[in-house]
Structure formats: structure tokens, C-alpha cells
Design a binder for these strands. Structure first.
Lengths: 155, 155
DNA sequence: GAAATTTGGTCAACCTGTTGACATTCAAGG
DNA sequence: CCTTGAATGTCAACAGGTTGACCAAATTTC
């Protein structure tokens, strides 16, 4: 962050909803990242990796986790060793298929999630509950409608 | 894209607005990227670099462009050579400051923008104009309200 | 059952971002 | 002047993403 001005920057491409969306997502990610870094010594991206993995049952293989994270299997394959080394993920062989690598979180990662999830949740609600003039539920529904609309257009 | 399932994936972290926002932004970016790749042989990221640069006057230095793009100056510094080589950007020295590197788009990049911007614009409006049940202007205003709210909380 | 295809993982090469350290230049202050 | 400090750009090392090529294992097809 060394040299980034993080306040609203002059929007050179006008007042477009796409620009606003990017800015908001960046903002939220940066916030979550900072919180996780300070309190738990991990990045948002690492947190998501473990949180998504933890929610998958039975233990997924690399391809399945990649799909759920929305990235390529090569991306997951490359990251696994560092997670194993950090003690957050354990790999296991699939007795039924010698090619597959099954992934599980470790108990340590489970404890970390049990701590971090409520912290994130609390900071999220604290941030949003006194937002007046905006109905968050409606906003969320609108966003989902837009997505459904895009899906229906087969982009 | 080789192996990514791009349809809605099981959302392992529940029905959160943050997840929805990420998904929507990804979706839009991927769409723009594909369009620009097919029609103009450039990525969305390259397009943004040039489009933002084109809107800045007078010709910005590397630090200014970095700020406007929302990335570090090292990131811009590294990318400049490839843009120069592609014939989209020209660098110039600042007579008043030997350290500064001033950046400008080339006429070729200008013509490319003149072509690409309306194409993007048209595909955007075509995609969104028959969206019923959602007031895009209100949606945009809501998003901006959320951002203002975050800004006011000094995150 | 052998051959062809699909599936799963890894690798190399690349793109794009970060931070921190560094050199250089410019602007001030003594 | 000359020294100090801020501004500017670059570099190295890293994190994380992509694609395309590739191998090996599993599955399908003939």
C-alpha cells in the first residue's frame, strides 16, 4: 500500500456503475484483508482458500476446490504446498483413484476459522447496520437479479 | 478458461452480499475481457490502462497514472515497456524534472479507443436496458451510498 | 482386452499485482 | 554552498492468476 492514495480517486471514465462496483469490492476486500492480517496473520485470499475448503464435504480434490474458488486447477495446485507447510491443509490420497489428491483442513485451521468467522461477521454487521437510505436486502436482491439476467443472456 | 466451470457455483459461504458482489464483478470483467480480446486483441486490463491514461491531461507521470489506476507505481513502471513496444504508449521526459517519465497514448491507441469505447458502451446498454424489476440508477446510487458510508467510517 | 478418450495433476512461461530497498533528482534550510 | 529530506522511478523477491503442453490413471468403446 506504500504509495497508494486510497481515497476516492478522480474517475476518468465517468460515473459508471461498473467503476463503482469495482471500487466497492476493492474497498471491502482491502478492509477484510487488513483485519485478517492484523488479527490472524493471514491474507483474505488465504482465508477464502481455507474457508471454502472447510465447507466442502467430503474432502474435495484439487479440481473441485478450484471450481469452488473460481480459479484454475493449476492455481490451486501451486498454492497447496505452502498451505501444507503452514499447517493449515493436509493432503490425502484417494484409494479409488491414484491420480486424485484429496484436500482437508487441519484442526488448527478449523480453530482459526472458528475464531475468524465471527470476527468478520461482527465487523460486517457493525459496518452495515446503521446504513440508512439503503435497504441492504433489496440491494442484494437487485444484484442477484442482474446476475440472473446476465446468465439468461448466455454471456 | 480451459477448465473453469463458469456457471453459478455452490456458494459455500452462504448467501452473502459480498460473495454476490464478487461474482457480479467477475462476470462483468470476464465479459468485457472476452469482447475486447475478440474484437481488438487486447485484455480488459490493457484497455483500462490506455483508457485511463487517455483521459488524463496533461500527460501524467508514472506515479499519477498509478494513483488513477489504483495500483502501485512499481506496477505501472513494469508494464510501460510492453505498451511502448505494442505501439500504444509513448514516453517523454519532463524538461523540468529529470526523474519524471511522462506518459501519453499514441495516435494508434487513440483510434483504438475511439472504436472500442462505443462497442463497450453499446454492449453494456444492450445488456442492461431490458432489466425489469431493477432500477439501475437507484442501484448505482445505493452502491455509492454504501461507499460513502464506508469512507465516513475511516476504514 | 486393446485402443482411444477423458480426467486429474503438474509444469513452464507468462502477466500483473505487492512490498521494501535502492539510486537519483529536486527542493529547502541552515 | 551544502546538507538534508521528499519525490520519482526501478529493481528484486514474492504471491497469485492464466494458458497450453504434458504425463499418468481411469474409463469408454470397439
Amino acid at each position: 500500500m506504500e504509495d497508494l492514495e486510497r481515497m476516492p480517486r478522480p474517475s476518468p471514465l465517468g460515473d459508471r456503475i461498473t467503476v463503482t462496483l469495482h471500487y466497492l469490492v476493492d474497498r471491502m476486500d482491502r478492509y477484510a484483508d487488513q483485519l485478517l492480517q492484523e488479527r490472524f496473520g493471514m491474507s483474505y485470499s488465504q482465508f477464502m482458500f481455507i474457508a471454502v475448503l472447510a465447507d466442502l464435504a467430503p474432502p474435495p480434490d484439487i479440481t473441485t476446490l478450484a471450481t469452488c474458488l473460481g480459479v484454475s486447477k493449476a492455481a490451486v495446485s501451486k498454492r497447496v504446498p505452502s498451505f501444507v507447510e503452514a499447517g493449515w491443509v493436509a493432503t490425502r490420497a484417494d484409494p479409488a483413484n491414484a491420480r486424485r489428491v484429496l484436500l482437508e483442513i487441519t484442526p488448527a485451521a478449523g480453530r482459526l476459522l472458528d475464531e475468524a468467522l465471527p470476527v468478520l461477521e461482527r465487523s460486517f454487521t457493525e459496518t452495515f447496520d446503521d446504513l440508512d437510505g439503503v435497504d441492504l436486502t433489496r440491494l442484494h436482491d437487485d444484484l442477484k437479479t442482474v446476475i440472473r439476467h446476465l446468465d439468461s443472456k448466455e454471456h
